[in-house]
Design a protein around this nucleic acid. Structure first.
Length: 824
RNA sequence: GCCCGGGUGGCGGAAUUGGAAGACGCGGAGGACUCAAAAUCCUCUGACCCUGCGGUCGUGUGGGUUCGAGUCCCACCCCGGGCACCA
């Protein structure tokens, strides 16, 4: 007597089994070909939400599929366990972030198991594990030795809500903190940085060689923001307007050296170090006032396009010399010129830059066009293609040629040089927070900052701390933590209380998974060489810039430092980014409170139904609305498969044996076609069509089993085997249960089925007959039909003849066996 | 403004090489089973015209290439995302 399908019981049983048997544990000397599948390691915020389910469903599918293909699959999981939420909770409740975090990890970990995701759990670690802290700090010291970690005074983004500085990447485009939403302020503070800009060009170039979504690569390229141009020195003018030789010139960066004859003014940023020197006494009061107001404005206000440009700039009362014309041009301050980009000074070229045009109009400055706009051009600044004019020796040249010629001239005159600028800034990694990896430095009164000796690592966070609602890190008040001696002079020193940005932890965890128990090094070269780069990385599109850029930088830097294999240039060979899940039109998130908890579904329809719904609803890279999910439909389909495979369905006729009928052969071919389709769909991440193929074939089997002749026992058995095998990576529990009931073996250790190419070719096909490109008839023909027979067949059709109106076709296009088109 | 991605039934989507537009699912309609309901099983379901046979239209818009275009080319519109007074 067939059993009813009890998804919850079946799933619990198999999850226990996979854990007990260590089915997905893998050793570094496994003889199978290595394949590394990694889903981005999660921040543990509690039980899995729908975004986790989606992410880990895709990852788990791939782990199981590659395993069946015969690979030795590395499937690790860890937890990105440092971060602000645990610390905020600590401030609220007094509970130590460690115990808070570990409770959240336990919840997340068990809910991942409940969706059927399998890992080598022996390799699991958390960012806050002392051994992981040790090696993160060790890497910091390596970067410090190499000059890639350094301390500098810099204008930083300060979030008053989080009471910490933020990386540029953590400030939203509207100037708000990514996490708290507070408006970010600008402060000058000494902070720790990683020298990611040294890798800007390689980070840009190497986007070519990685198999990542174009969208993500484009976002990274935009973020790096390469622009090619020249730095040009504009001499300071004396009272007579002649260049002074006794003071250094002002360097400006431009992408358009060809427009040099059109420079009619120059601008410094308000923070430029030479403002005082270049301000005339008559303008001093106005300049001071302007600098004060600029400093008080937030980044948001400063970068906004609101406000009239005459209010946002002020004359210095001095002049520079346009080196192209030799004539003096007035110097201004303007708040939209940024200290952090280029040289903090620009040349004003109103004719070819709209913002410069507006500034020139506002301040009544001359405008000289140096590129001829097309006839009828009605605009103001002209930025397009055209011949140079008013430019002496550049006249007549096109823009590209003129840029080259002008840059040559600038270099040969010793006025400057070609220069590439990047928008990318060095990565600010220090955070004034408690719950993060401590920066392994001490500050000695005499020697300054000195690295903690390797033998003293890890520097761990103390347990006996009081969290105060001031938001200040309790490390600042913890004498036991603060007290240190200088590694250089042994004198009294104070330990650095800043911790590292949590993105540092996630910048190398994928390397540690290759060798998680290594006590001598963060990982061995051999283990890294075996597993890296990650064959398939899977995660949310929201990490397109931050995490993925930092991880690429770390991998390159570690290879350069001899820590990682030197031929390892990229961490993730292939990247897949899933879309976000929306509910009621907004991204599903805890902060918005519009979460759909997976638990209720796991309790009712089960993990397989939920996984299937995620796979089926949409192409995986696209954003999805929860409203579009069809969990019930998927549960219904799994019920159909269960009844089919468990023998609950029968026809009036008993199963046949012996010779096979045409219907039997069709089913057999259908099973091979299914194998082929699902395999190719898996390879191209087209899971929604893979699910459709399984549903289609199941429908076909239903008709077959219920047909008057009944199914052929052997044909049905083989067809069902193939259906269960190809479904196994998608719905691992139900297929494992049915497989075991049918043959007593474990489906996930079975080899992936192969399609017989001979069976993929149908014997009878539909020949489409068109007259003048419109379909007029469809004929069942032999797949091997030749051209003349196909045309003959087509012409014999009554419907076709009706549309030919008695005349013969003037032209015949035959593509046997699929199509004949008759043209009159 | 620059750079990516996209636009197909009531809805999510399919069409892998230029060759049957709408697979599969949801939703909807009808039927079988049942005392009844649920569950299950079966059939139909792009729009319009037509009693029917059948016909016309149809993949954002307008052109083009082709025997044939959702797919290729040109121009444009709209939606989503990234960058942006970035010199």
């Amino acid at each position: 007597m067939p059993d009813r399908y009890d998804a919850v019981a079946v799933e619990r049983r198999w999850q226990e089994r996979w854990r007990r048997d260590g089915t997905y544990e893998i050793d570094n000397d496994d003889p199978r070909p290595p394949y590394y599948v990694l889903s981005m390691y999660p921040y543990p915020s509690g039980p899995a939400h729908m975004g986790h389910v989606r992410n880990y469903t895709f990852g788990d599918l791939l782990v199981r599929y590659r395993t069946m293909l015969g690979d030795g699959v590395l499937s690790p999981i860890g937890f990105d366990s440092f971060g602000l939420p645990a610390e905020n909770a600590a401030i609220g409740t007094g509970e130590h972030p460690r115990s808070f975090t570990e409770a959240r990890i336990a919840e997340l970990s068990s809910s991942l198991e409940r969706i059927g995701a399998v890992y080598d759990r022996r390799r699991t670690f958390r960012s806050h594990d002392p051994e992981y802290i040790r090696w993160t700090q060790w890497i910091f010291l390596k970067l410090y030795e190499a000059g890639l970690a350094y301390r500098a005074e810099a204008p930083v983004n300060w979030c008053p809500g989080c009471q910490t500085v933020l990386a540029n990447e953590q400030v939203l485009p509207d100037g708000a903190c990514e996490r708290s939403g507070d408006p970010v302020e600008h402060r000058e503070l000494a902070q720790w940085f990683f020298g990611i800009t040294a890798y800007a060009q390689r980070l840009l170039d190497d986007t070519e060689g990685i198999d990542w979504p174009e969208r993500v690569k484009s976002m990274q390229r935009n973020w790096i923001g390469r622009s090619v141009g020249a730095e040009i020195a504009l001499p300071v003018a004396d009272a007579a307007g002649r260049p002074r030789r006794d003071v250094a010139p002002i360097e400006v960066f431009t992408t358009r050296p060809d427009t040099g004859f059109g420079i009619t003014y120059a601008v410094l940023s308000p923070e430029h170090p030479r403002v005082d020197e270049l301000t005339a006494p008559s303008q001093r009061a106005a300049v001071e006032e302007f600098r004060r107001s600029a400093a008080s404005r937030s980044e948001m206000q400063r970068l906004s396009t609101e406000g009239r440009l005459d209010k946002r700039g002020v004359a210095c009362g001095s002049s520079l010399v346009n080196p192209f014309t030799g004539r003096p041009v007035p110097l201004f301050l303007a708040d939209y010129v940024l200290t952090t980009y280029g040289t903090g000074a620009i040349m004003g070229v109103p004719g070819e830059d709209q913002r410069d045009w507006e500034f020139a109009v506002a301040h009544d400055l001359p405008i000289v066009r140096t590129v001829q706009p097309p006839d009828g051009f009605g605009g103001e600044a002209y930025t397009g293609e055209g011949p140079s004019i008013n430019s002496d020796w550049l006249d007549g040249l096109g823009v590209a040629d003129a840029i080259e010629r002008a840059a040559d001239w600038v270099e040969s005159e010793g006025l400057g040089r070609r220069k590439v600028n990047y928008r990318l800034r060095d990565w600010l990694v220090s955070r004034q927070r408690f719950w993060g990896c401590p920066i392994p430095m001490v500050c000695c009164e005499r020697c300054g900052y000195k690295p903690v000796p390797e033998s003293e690592l890890p520097v761990l966070l103390p347990d006996d701390v009081d969290f105060l609602p001031t938001g200040r890190s309790p490390l600042n008040a913890h004498e036991g933590f603060l007290a240190a001696s200088c590694p250089a002079c042994d004198g009294p020193a104070r330990r650095e209380t800043d911790t590292m940005d949590t993105f540092v932890d996630s910048s190398w965890y994928f390397l540690r998974f290759a060798d998680p128990a290594n006590g001598e090094a963060p990982f061995s070269q051999a283990a890294a060489a075996r597993w890296l780069p990650v064959d398939q990385y899977i995660g949310g599109i929201e990490h397109a810039i931050l995490h993925l850029m930092y991880a690429r930088f770390f991998t390159k830097a570690l290879a350069d430092l001899g820590v990682a294999p030197d031929d390892l240039s990229e961490p993730f060979a292939r990247l897949f980014t899933q879309g976000m899940i929306r509910l009621g039109g907004a991204k599903m998130s805890k902060s918005r409170g519009n979460l759909v908890a997976p638990e209720a579904i796991l309790d009712r329809q089960g993990a397989d139904a939920l996984r299937l719904a995620h796979l089926q609803v949409k192409p995986p890279q696209e954003d999805v609305d929860w409203e579009d999910f069809g969990v019930d439909g998927c549960a219904k389909f799994l019920g159909r498969v269960w009844r089919l495979a468990d023998g609950a369905l029968s026809s009036d006729a008993p199963p046949r044996t012996g010779d096979r009928t045409g219907a039997d052969l069709e089913i057999d071919r259908g099973a091979h076609r299914l194998t082929d389709r699902v395999t190719r769909d898996f390879e191209r991440w087209s899971y929604n069509t893979a699910v459709a193929a399984c549903m289609e074939f199941t429908n076909e089997l239903y008709r077959y089993v219920q047909s008057p002749d009944g199914p052929h026992a052997e044909v049905l058995r083989e067809a069902l085997d193939r259906l269960l095998l190809v479904m196994a990576p998608m719905t691992p529990h139900i297929t494992a249960e049915l497989w075991e009931r049918r043959c007593g073996r474990h489906i996930h250790t079975e080899p992936w089925p192969q399609a017989d190419p001979a069976k993929l070719r149908a014997e009878r096909v539909t020949l489409v007959v068109q007259v003048n490109g419109k379909v007029r008839d469809r004929l069942e023909v032999d797949a091997a039909i030749d051209e003349s027979a196909a045309v003959q067949h087509a012409l014999a059709s009554e419907r076709v003849q009706r549309h030919l109106h008695g005349a013969g076709p003037r032209r015949v296009i035959a593509r046997p066996p699929k199509l004949v088109n008759l043209v009159t």
